[in-house]
């Protein structure tokens, strides 16, 4: 464990807490893409298949349980919660995210570290996480204005993978056997997808103005 990875995990956790806070305090999920949340639930379930088979550390196990349970809870809230579900932007959240699932599944069957069920699922989850934010970014572009908590949610979600890139660079130089090309390339693509959001987020923060994304 190095400081970059720990910072990345904490930033990721903060993004989930901000989202839960928004849904819990405002009892609303306006501006939140259910499709992105469903993709994240798939990402965590397919990535943490080793939750019960490999014990890495208490920290690792606890964080996996937190990520899986929070992502499923958020999907349940937006789908089933009698108050929250009313504010779901169903007509704006129309990204065909199952296409992303199909494309990542095909890619994982072609490019993986080892051809085993667990490894292919792991590669699939890495690829899917890189593109899981797309429905959310499309929804924000369509709705134009971004409320503070949603903006912070996307900002922390993007920042966590940037910390992981620093972690991979650090591990590459400090551990002789460390090569995780699948994670690195996918992580760079993932962070790049946030780039334009980061740009508008920084501008709005600098001008102390409301975050407006160009439609």
């Amino acid at each position: 464990m190095n400081v970059f990875r720990f910072a990345g995990d904490m930033t990721h956790l903060i993004s989930i807490l901000v989202l839960l806070l928004k849904i819990y305090t405002t009892k609303s999920c306006s501006g939140i893409s259910l499709k992105t949340q469903e993709l994240y639930a798939v990402v965590f379930v397919t990535r943490y298949l080793d939750l019960v088979t490999d014990f890495i550390s208490v920290y690792n196990t606890v964080m996996k349980v937190v990520f899986i349970s929070s992502s499923l809870a958020i999907v349940w809230c937006i789908r089933r919660h009698k108050v929250v579900r009313r504010s779901y932007d169903k007509e704006l959240d129309t990204f065909r995210h199952w296409l992303l699932v199909g494309a990542c599944a095909v890619l994982a069957l072609v490019v993986h570290e080892k051809f085993s069920f667990q490894e292919v699922c792991w590669a699939f989850s890495i690829y899917l996480e890189a593109v899981a934010i797309l429905p959310q970014l499309v929804l924000l572009q369509r709705s134009g204005n971004v409320d503070n908590l949603t903006g912070q949610y996307v900002f922390f979600l993007g920042a966590y993978r940037a910390f992981y890139i620093l972690n991979w660079i650090y591990r590459y130089y400090s551990e002789q056997h460390f090569t995780r090309w699948i994670s690195c390339v996918s992580g760079i693509v993932q962070t790049a997808l946030y780039a334009d959001f980061f740009y508008y987020y920084f501008i709005s923060w600098k001008n102390n103005s409301k975050l407006q994304l160009p439609a």
């Binding site: 990721h12 992981y164 460390f178 090569t179 995780r180």
Partner: peptide, 10 residues
């Protein structure tokens, strides 16, 4: 050094 197959990252 653990084999690279062990996924120790989240």
């Amino acid at each position: 050094t653990e084999p690279s197959s062990v996924k120790d990252e989240l």
